Amino acid sequence: MNYTILVHGAAYGTQNASSAFLFCKSLLALNQILHSVFFYCDGVYNANSMTTPAVDEFNLIQAWQSLHKKYQVKLYVCTSAALRRGVIEDESISKKNIQKGNLAIFFQLSGLLELADSMQKCDRIIQF
C-alpha cells in the first residue's frame, strides 16, 4: 500500500502530530510505502525550527527530520497556512537586512496541488 499522511495538529498541544509520526514509523516498519506527509492548518507548526521543547520532552520536529533523512519521506508544508502562522522560508525585512526564515530543514513549502497529486498517487490518505 502507498500512503499519504495529512497532519492538521501542531507539534505540541495536541496529540495529532505525535500520533501521525508514530503511524508513519509503523507503516515503514511494516514495509509499506509512505509517499509523503503534508502539514496543513496548525500542522505547519511541525516545520517551525524555532520550536524548542523542554529537555525531557520528545523533539517531534527533529523526529520528522530524522524520518526524512532515514527514509527520504517528503515533508510538504502548505505555503498559505505557513505564512498565516509565521513559518517562513526566507523573508526580506528591508532592502538592507535579510532574515533567514524559520522553516526547518527537510521541510518543503508547497501548495494544495502537491497534496492533490499525492492523493492521486496513493492508495490511502490518513488524516491526523
Rank of each mutant, 00 (worst) to 15 (best):
C24A: 15
I5F: 08
C41I: 05
T4I: 11
F128V: 05
A116S: 13
F39G: 03
N2R: 15
F23N: 14
I126G: 02
Q108D: 10
N46M: 03
D42S: 12
R85H: 06
A47P: 01
L113R: 10
F107Q: 00
P53L: 14
G86D: 02
F128I: 05
T51A: 10
R85L: 04
S118H: 08
N48A: 11
F23A: 15
S18H: 10
V77A: 00
A104E: 02
N97I: 12
A82K: 00
V87G: 03
K95D: 14
F107P: 06
I88T: 15
V37H: 04
Q99L: 09
C24W: 06
I125K: 08
L27F: 10
N31K: 15
C78Y: 08
G43T: 02
S80A: 15
Q15N: 15
C78W: 02
Y40D: 04
M50N: 11
L22T: 07
S66L: 12
D42Q: 08
K96N: 13
A63M: 08
F106Q: 12
Y40C: 04
A20K: 04
Y76T: 05
A11E: 02
N31R: 14
A29C: 03
R124F: 12
H68C: 13
D90E: 15
L30M: 09
L27Y: 02
N2Q: 13
D90K: 13
A47G: 01
T79H: 12
K95Q: 13
L27H: 02
A104C: 11
D42N: 15
F39M: 01
S66R: 13
R84N: 13
D123T: 08
L30W: 03
A20S: 14
L112Q: 02
L113V: 14
L6N: 01
K74I: 10
A104K: 03
Q120F: 00
L60M: 04
L28W: 00
L103H: 06
N2Y: 05
A82H: 02
N16K: 10
T79E: 10
A10T: 04
C24P: 06
S94N: 15
H8L: 13
M1W: 09
N2S: 15
N16F: 09
